[in-house]
Every structure is written in C-alpha cells, then in structure tokens.
Design a protein around this nucleic acid. Sequence first.
RNA 1: GUAAAGUGGCCAGGACU
Length: 319
Amino acid sequence: EVCSTTLVSAFASVGRVEDAKSLFDAIESPNVVSSTAMLSCYLHNGRTDEGKLWFQSMGSRNVVSWTALVGALAQNGDVQEGRKVYDRMPKWDAVSTSALVAAYAAVGKIEEAKDLFDCMEERGPAVEAIMLKGYALNGQMQEAEGFFHGMQQTDVVAWSALIHGYSDRLQMDRAARIFERIPMRDGVCWNTLLAGYATKGEWAEVKELLERIPEWSASTWNALLGGYVGNGQLREAKLLFDSMAQRNLVSWTTLLSGYAQKGQLQEAIELLRFMQLEGVQPNGVSYLCILVACSRKNNFVQARQSFVDMQADWSILPT
RNA sequence: GUAAAGUGGCCAGGACU
C-alpha cells in the first residue's frame, strides 16, 4: 500500500482526483497515511468541501491529516476556520504551527503570526522564511531586515524572500545589493531578481543578468514573459512564448492574462484550445482570463459557453 | 544511514479603486 499511496499522490499532483479515488478504493486496508494522501488530493485540487467531508469520515487521523486541513483552509484565505481547526487538534508540532503562522502572514496579520512564532519551541528555517515573507508582503522591510539579521543561520530561501520583498516594492537597487551578497545563489535567487527587473521593464538590467545566469528554468522564461505582458508588449510576449524552451501552466496563464487584459478574446480562446491540445489542463485562473476577455468584448454568449465548459470538461467550480 | 501523506523563497492568478 506504500505503492498505492504513492500513486494516489501522483494522481493528486496532476489533478486526477477521480483516478486517485478509484485507486484509493482499491486499497484493501487503507492506513492513516493513505487516507491522508487522499485528503490532500481533495484539498490541493480546490475541492475543499469534499476534503472536509472526507476528513470527518476518516477513521484515524494524525497530526499530518490535521495540518493538511489547516493549511488548505489557510490557503483559501479562511484563516478563522483554519484557526478553529488548529485549536481542535489533539496535538501540535512545528509543522502544524508553521502552517497557521503562514496563514496569518499571508493575510497580513503579522502580529498574530509573530505571537504564534514566538510561542514555538522549535523554529526551523521554514517558519522563519514564512515570517520574512509576511513582513515583505506587508511592506515592512525594516522589520524584515531586523528579523533577517536576528536569524542564527540564513539559508538561500531567506535571502530570496528578502530580495523579493524589495523587488515587490520596486526597490531594485536594494534588491540587487542583497543579491550580490548571497553566499550561495540558487536558481530562485536569480529568477527573483530577474522578475523584478522584467516587471519594471528595465531591460538593460535584464539583459545583463541573463548573461550571468547559470541556468534557465521555466520560471526564468516566465519572468521574461511576465515582463512583456505586464508592460503591455503582447507582440513580444507571443514571440517569446513561441520560442520558449520550457513552458508550464504558468506560461500559458501569463499569456492568457495578457490577452484578457487587452480584450483579445479570439487569441485567448485559441490559446486555451492550443494548451489543451498540448495536454496542459486549464485551471480556474485560465478560465477567469477567458471570462475577463469576454466581458471586455461584451460577449455574453462566449462567456456563458466557457463557464459551462469549465465545469463540464474540467470539473472546475466557480468560486 | 534509505521508501508513501502535512508547513518555507522565484514566474501566471481579472476589472474598479
């Protein structure tokens, strides 16, 4: 059943919930790990209500099952309910508390996050990065810096969280200065800085960075693509998209969102079709882009059709 | 010292403001 559980997770990660469920049903005596994997499958695929029902029906639960639920509620922005579930947990560990800290941080309740953080007995690098991101999201870069300097050890994740904070606030000079001080840069560090420049349309800096970057990933390409789209250069965006060595769902959605903003409905519809032909599953965001494009064109018929397709073809429910 | 499930940093996630 270790194998079956692995497969359940595999199906979950590609959105094949029904397949995961059939597989789960075929397990003779599911244990808490396999039923928790199934729980995560629902939760990660936006099927929170089914997940909740599943959770209630689970014969046995452990701290992982509880944490999965807390984390999912938190990611849906439902911190209140996440907190309620958290309070009902029979016991907690560093991961479960981190999940709640992340929930608070993500909605800007940084004091609550900090209080919880301060109560933790073991604080790993993960929860420290969560706090950094929370400060950055809140625009509290001094606090972020202070927090960063108080850390015993700073890993590459903490560094890139800091860079992201500055580049989010369009303070690229500060972001760049921090970037140059990183002892060991990984791909994310490079992409973070790159995305900042691309967003601002600082193409000279982009070019310089691209000459230094050790390795290109899909995110590298997407950062460039996002730069073009964000600056309204859809022609360049399309050219780049067609020449990209690596594409993922984000690439497709980025271009789709560009068409949506410009009201280029035909192009958007074609792109959605093309992505399906390429075997990439649209998600709720993809369809949102289509609907936005429709509304800009006042095309109610197409909107209605896409709205139906979304649910019929992909079981994506409106939120 | 090795296997399955939960928490961390980059790229998409509308419009109005």
